[in-house]
């Protein structure tokens, strides 16, 4: 597991999701990336209707970590657990309930290009597609600051102008901490929240 950057691809006017995916994947394939299976990230949100101060809980499944589940409180604690977490949460259903429409997922093609891992996914709520995600992972390094130069260059060639100009703050752990799956999951939750918001705004 190395440093991972996730962003939402903003579709140009007049292009639908299918066309955008084709455009990015042809661009990735031109760089020499090889298809390496499919990937899936699922996020289910829970809230406690009777506890007004309770934060939202996100339960994340990522096919890159098949034996793990990630539990993330919004602006709160983070925990990596085994697969029994959903059975555990179902036991707390008297207090913690799944949010209505709180299930969102991201599925798509996974590419390998040397030390890089590129994932292009369609984000959907239920059956309807809502947006496109682009994930780039640089596997050999666990310090974002040290490999950002290379990642930034790779992002430029995949998503062009939409690449961030400098190291995003959410990739920088406090102090000199190593990059961890926690930061990957936070980025996913952030992206899912943004996609939900823009869908509502439309």
């Amino acid at each position: 597991m190395g440093v991972t950057y996730i962003c939402q691809w903003k579709q140009p006017e007049g292009q639908n999701i299918q066309q955008s995916i084709e455009q990015i994947s042809s661009c990735v394939e031109k760089l020499g990336a090889k298809k390496a299976g499919l990937f899936q990230v699922e996020c289910e949100s829970f809230n406690a209707p009777n506890a007004p101060n309770a934060k939202t809980l996100h339960l994340i499944y990522d096919s890159e970590f098949p034996a793990s589940r990630f539990a993330l409180f919004e602006e709160g604690s983070f925990l990596v657990t085994d697969v029994m977490l959903s059975a555990f949460l179902s036991k707390l259903r008297a207090v913690w309930q799944p949010k209505k429409g709180g299930k969102i997922d991201c599925k798509g093609q996974r590419y390998e290009l040397g030390d890089f891992l590129i994932k292009l996914g369609v984000v959907s709520v239920g059956a309807s597609a809502k947006g496109i995600s682009v994930e780039l992972e640089y596997a050999p390094c666990v310090y974002a600051r040290d490999c950002w130069g290379m990642m930034s260059e790779m992002l430029q060639s995949i998503i062009g102008e939409q690449a961030p100009p400098s190291l995003p703050s959410n990739l920088q752990p406090k102090g000199t901490e190593r990059f961890s799956p926690e930061l990957t999951m936070q980025q996913y939750v952030e992206m899912f929240n943004n996609i939900r918001k823009t869908v509502v705004a439309r």
Partner: peptide, 20 residues
């Protein structure tokens, strides 16, 4: 009794606190 055991990565105190 029903019993569900979950292995977790680190001290779950804060997580359980967030759950109430």
């Amino acid at each position: 009794r029903s019993c569900v055991t979950v292995a977790v990565s680190n001290d779950p105190a804060q997580f359980l606190d967030n759950l109430g």
